[in-house]
Write a protein that binds this DNA or RNA. Structure first.
Length: 289
DNA sequence: CCTCATTCCTGCGGGC
DNA sequence: TGCCCGCAGGAATGAG
């Protein structure tokens, strides 16, 4: 389940192994993998042949590869997407969706995606920042991310704080796992209402988000199975450091109370019933003039 | 503008 | 043994 740390790990690997290389040919093996490339798979392959990769960039969970044409390849790994560097003679993966071959006959870049939530497209003139992801907020590791603006925007919202953390137009890069981890560290229940958070509480939460993302990058990301791997197919080990996510019934590492699991947006939230008490008023239906 | 439910997809594992 | 169903979940989309 790639979130910012996993995508950043992939970005670093891609940056090392494909920057400066020229694409010879592209093979689209599943149309859904390029569904957001409106002109279609054949066009996707045509427009990339002969182009040189200049850089590998990331915002939140999105990656993009500026090209010497001024365009960029935009990618999102979705739930199960992998970008792998593989020797040309390595057998095709079961869920291989797109293959990039390079002029130098070195390792291929393969987009492998079991559940096909991930997607690649070409952004015209998108080298600086693809227009397709202009609506995505800066992530908290971006040097130009403004803590004060985020806190102000968060407190203007009137929704549950976990929903806000998952809203990529407010702050990007945070998914279900790291939202739960940051909320556990901050001692806040995810159904706390944003406009009732004090400024200092919001700043503390943001600091925990930033810390947990940074620590996870150092660990090479989180993986529960083989679905998230870096470009060499290796799993990260941050899952050993998780305090809340996936720990239902296990003792809270801070107070010992059993971690609880609650339904949330058709998925699960994990929290400590003692460190993260539910707010007295749940829901958003309170406010006088 | 803002918030929220729905939809896409497939392998795995639990239950019967 | 084998089938079915729920679950995992990011983000676009449209409704209200």
């Amino acid at each position: 389940m790639p979130e910012l740390p996993e995508v950043e790990t992939v970005r670093q690997g891609l940056s090392r192994w494909i920057t400066g290389r020229r694409i010879r040919s592209v093979q689209v093996r599943h149309p859904r993998a390029v569904r957001r490339h409106v002109p279609g798979g054949a066009h996707f392959a045509d427009v990339l042949a002969g182009r040189k990769v200049l850089d590998v960039c990331r915002r939140g969970k999105y990656l993009w590869l500026p090209l010497d044409s001024g365009d960029a390849v935009v990618g999102h790994l979705g739930m199960s997407g992998q970008l792998l560097l593989q020797p040309a003679d390595a057998p095709d993966e079961t869920h291989l969706r797109v293959r990039f071959r390079f002029d130098d006959d070195g390792a291929e870049l393969r987009f492998v995606d079991q559940r096909t939530f991930g997607c690649l497209s070409v952004s015209e003139g998108g080298g600086m920042l693809p227009s397709e992801i202009a609506h995505i907020a800066r992530d908290p590791l971006d040097p130009e991310f403004s803590d004060a603006e985020f806190v102000a925007a968060l407190r203007r919202r009137r929704t549950e704080v976990k929903r806000a953390l998952l809203d990529q137009s407010l702050i990007s890069g945070v998914g279900n796992i790291y939202a739960d981890e940051a909320l556990w560290r901050a001692g806040l229940h995810g159904t706390r209402i944003t406009d009732a958070l004090t400024g200092p509480a919001a700043h503390r939460l943001l600091a925990q988000v930033r810390d947990v993302l940074g620590e996870a990058i150092t660990a090479g990301g989180t993986s529960f199975d083989a679905l998230y791997v870096d470009v060499n197919g290796e799993s990260g080990y941050f899952d050993r450091s998780l305090n809340a996510y996936g720990r239902e019934g296990q003792p809270c590492r801070r107070c010992g109370a059993p971690i609880r699991r609650e339904a949330f947006m058709n998925r699960s939230s994990f929290s400590c019933p003692r460190c993260q008490p539910r707010p007295r008023t749940s829901g958003t239906g309170r406010r006088a003039g």
